[in-house]
């Protein structure tokens, strides 16, 4: 499963975080079947650049899949330590910015604001576009 747009993807991630459901993140990650064509197909470039994008993806795909998993585990542990209850928090997407990188990848940085009592948190979701939809590339949390 991917999301049709990065806003919807961030809302899925918020739901995953609220449930504390690490397995729920899996369908939102880049799949092992994702190829360079899926990532760069929307941006026709010179053949040399396509080849470079393919190589870069082959090298980085395992890390791109593992990084959000580790980030979610850290985020849930940190939240528990601080007593921040995402399930009870009011959380909503607040801002989104799109970037198109030189090699043709289209990514979005989405910020969701959450409040629980006096505590405040910002969830940052970095998303990447492929022909199959939007996927999570990185997660981070900032505590206020």
């Amino acid at each position: 499963m991917s999301a049709p747009d990065p806003w919807a993807l961030a809302e899925h991630v918020l739901a995953v975080v609220a449930r504390g459901d690490a397995a729920g993140l899996e369908p939102l990650l880049l799949s092992a079947e994702t190829g360079a064509d899926d990532l760069a197909a929307s941006l026709p470039r010179a053949p040399e650049e396509q080849a470079w994008a393919r190589e870069r993806l082959a090298e980085n795909l395992p890390a791109l899949r593992d990084a959000p998993r580790a980030a979610l585990a850290g985020l849930l542990a940190d939240s528990a330590r601080r007593g921040f209850d995402w399930a009870a928090a009011r959380a909503a997407v607040a801002a989104l910015e799109v970037e198109v990188e030189d090699e043709g990848l289209r990514s979005a940085l989405v910020r969701a604001d959450a409040a629980h009592g006096e505590a405040r948190a910002q969830l940052h979701v970095s998303a990447v576009w492929t022909r199959r939809g939007w996927h999570v590339m990185q997660l981070a949390v900032a505590w206020a």
């Binding site: 747009d5 806003w7 909503a92 997407v93 607040a94 801002a95 989104l96 910015e97 799109v98 198109v100 289209r106």
Partner: peptide
């Protein structure tokens, strides 16, 4: 074309 940015603001309690 491509969506470039979205910013949510609140006015009178509405998004």
């Amino acid at each position: 074309w491509c969506v470039e940015s979205i910013e949510v603001k609140r006015r009178g309690g509405l998004e």
